[in-house]
Amino acid sequence: MNTATLIAVILIAVILFLAVRYIIKEKKKGNACIGCPYADSCPKHRHDCK
């Protein structure tokens, strides 16, 4: 395995890991729509107010 391959594999792993981790963190916060700027006022996530 040459250096390029090594770097590539690590890079892919890191990128995917970060992406998946971000999504899981958001889901835990209750944000079902990733990247949606209106998640705050989306009725899906409001349990207190109507």
Partner: peptide, 20 residues
């Protein structure tokens, strides 16, 4: 800019994973 940020986040997460 807010919208751009959301777009990029979406691209870097959902779309990235889908593509992979």
């Amino acid at each position: 800019m807010e919208r751009a940020k959301a777009y990029i986040i979406k691209a870097a997460t959902i779309i990235l994973i889908c593509n992979t």
